[in-house]
């Protein structure tokens, strides 16, 4: 604080507030709503509804390729999307082909299969209704190869079974054999690579889910090249809401994204608050500076 001008010192302190104070506020803004189970309702926006409608319109037995293009870091944001999409696909009796362009996606496929398909839809048969193709290195190069020949890269599934011994793989030749590609993650390689190297050249519908940070980058592809997008927790929450609206029985299932919207809302409000404070102190500071200028004060 400036001892010569305590008032100005106060505004200076606020204007140059230590970032750790902001961190503390954000921490509380998240923790308190979590403890109080504060949540909000969501309505699906057109970009999310488009993904829901596409899955809803697919006939029974349609083939959906789900690419787990993310890692543990983004699990809290992306996993709720995967859970909701898997539930929806299972409910519609679609065939789910799960693969990963990210090494870290391999384990996440196993976890999703255990937590959603095996637990909630025990009648689904591995190899007939869903398959884990695992991780393959190659990024966009891999997409490039499987666009024309799937089995060139996938000779076995993740469990080591010969690929042609997996019943649902028999009539899969390349990417064009799929009715829909879902890429989950939004990083590299991810939705953009699926659109550019898979969806566009093969004329295959691509949709996906991305973290809130990556979502704006993908907007230019919507709706022509990317039929829909779940952006961040909000996108996931909107999809969960659409699913509950279409299939009310899922209301009793976990809906982590809807639950997380409460803390996110409060955190956004805290950020807005700090922006307002930042601007108020900025204007006051500028006014004082102008005043000093008029009085012939020294300006830094």
């Amino acid at each position: 604080m400036n001892p010569d001008n305590p008032k100005m010192g106060f505004f200076e302190t606020i204007a140059n507030i230590d970032r750790r104070v902001i961190f503390l506020f954000i921490g509380f803004a998240v923790i308190i709503p979590v403890l109080l189970s504060f949540s909000c309702t969501e309505e699906a926006t057109p970009i999310v509804q488009a993904v829901y409608d596409e899955i809803e319109s697919l006939p029974e037995g349609s083939k959906v390729l789900i690419s787990f293009d993310y890692g543990p870091s983004t699990v809290p944001e992306v996993q709720p999307m995967i859970d909701a999409l898997l539930r929806h696909s299972c409910e519609k009796n679609l065939k789910m082909y799960m693969m990963a362009l990210w090494g870290t996606g391999h384990n996440l496929i196993s976890e999703s299969m255990q937590d959603i398909i095996e637990k909630e839809f025990p009648h689904k048969i591995y190899g007939v209704d869903y398959v884990n193709l695992g991780y393959k290195a190659g990024n966009q190069g891999l997409i490039n190869v499987i666009l024309t020949d799937m089995k060139k890269m996938y000779t076995t599934d993740a469990r080591g079974s010969e690929i042609d011994a997996v019943p649902m793989m028999v009539d899969i030749r390349n990417l064009k054999s799929f009715d829909l590609i879902l890429s989950m993650g939004g990083g590299f390689p991810g939705i953009k690579e699926w659109v550019l190297f898979g969806g566009d050249p093969g004329n295959i519908p691509v949709a996906g889910g991305a973290t809130a940070v990556s979502a704006p980058l993908l907007y230019p592809y919507y709706p022509r090249q990317l039929l829909g997008l779940l952006g961040g927790i909000k996108g996931a929450a909107e999809y969960e809401s659409a699913l509950i609206k279409g299939y009310p029985k899922f209301k009793t299932h976990s809906h982590p994204a809807i639950d997380m919207m409460g803390p996110q809302t409060v955190a956004h409000i805290v950020i807005v608050f700090f922006i307002v404070i930042g601007n108020i102190t900025f204007f006051i500071g500028r006014k004082r500076e102008e005043g000093e200028k008029r009085e012939g004060g020294v300006i830094k």
Binding site: S57, L58, P59, G61, S62, D171, R173, N174, K176, S177, D179, N203
Partner: peptide, 16 residues
């Protein structure tokens, strides 16, 4: 059977 097309669509690519 090699595949399905949704109502309203009038084309299908047999890539096999």
């Amino acid at each position: 059977s090699i595949g399905f097309a949704a109502a309203g669509s009038n084309r299908y690519v047999d890539a096999n």
